[in-house]
Structures are given as structure tokens and as C-alpha cells.
């Protein structure tokens, strides 16, 4: 069996679902961020796979690079927020930081 587009898409989908599961179940802010990274990686595999198999040009890869760039920005900001939360609440459990709703 030749490895084709669907194989890559399925790998991407599995990564995406695992990330989603992480985000859904974790209470730890850093773990949630890790889940987000998995989701972004899954989406990126799709971009590059389509760029390779469907369109035949590199535009998909450009989008992938943009996603990676935004992921870097998101990680930097996200982790800075996590550190700030940790300094205030002395925990990074997201349930603890729900004071905004009151």
C-alpha cells in the first residue's frame, strides 16, 4: 500500500483529537497549552500534506510557517500568563483562577 494523502490526514486528525482530549480533561494550565500545541501540529500536517499532494505549490507551507510563528507567540504569552498566575495564586490549576466570574 502506497502512503497517500489520507494517511497524513489521519495522522493529523489523531494528533488533533489527542490535543483536544488534553485540553478537555486537564486542569493544569501548562498541560492545556501542550494540548493546544498538539492541535496546531495536527492542523499543520494537514496544510503541508495538502500543499504536497493537492495543490503542488508551496503556499500551504507558507500557512504552516505562519501557524508555527503564531504558536511561538502564543506559547510565549501563554506561559508568561501562567507564570503570572502562579505568582498570584501559587497554583496553576485553571479551576483556581476562576475568580473573574464573581
Amino acid at each position: 500500500m502506497v502512503v497517500g494523502l489520507t494517511h497524513y490526514l489521519v495522522v493529523g486528525a489523531i494528533l488533533f483529537t489527542l490535543g483536544l482530549y488534553s485540553v478537555l480533561t486537564r486542569r493544569n494550565a501548562i498541560s492545556i497549552l501542550m494540548g493546544v500545541e498538539l492541535i496546531l501540529n495536527g492542523a499543520n500536517i494537514n496544510y503541508v500534506a495538502f500543499s504536497h499532494f493537492s495543490s503542488g505549490n508551496v503556499e500551504g507551507q507558507i500557512y504552516a510557517v505562519f501557524v508555527i510563528m503564531l504558536a511561538a507567540a502564543e506559547a510565549a504569552i501563554g506561559l508568561a500568563i501562567v507564570l503570572a498566575i502562579f505568582q498570584i495564586f501559587h497554583t496553576i490549576d485553571v479551576a483556581a483562577a476562576e475568580t473573574l466570574k464573581e
Binding site: 502512503v3 497524513y8 495522522v11 499543520n44 500536517i45 503541508v48 500534506a49 500543499s51 504536497h52 508551496v58 507551507q61 504552516a64 510557517v65 508555527i68
Partner: peptide, 10 residues
């Protein structure tokens, strides 16, 4: 996987 897809830069 990117390497497999010929996306060296990515």
C-alpha cells in the same frame, strides 16, 4: 513527516 512531504523549510 514534513521531510516526508518534501517540505524541507517547514
Amino acid at each position: 513527516i514534513y521531510v516526508f512531504l518534501g517540505a524541507d523549510f517547514v
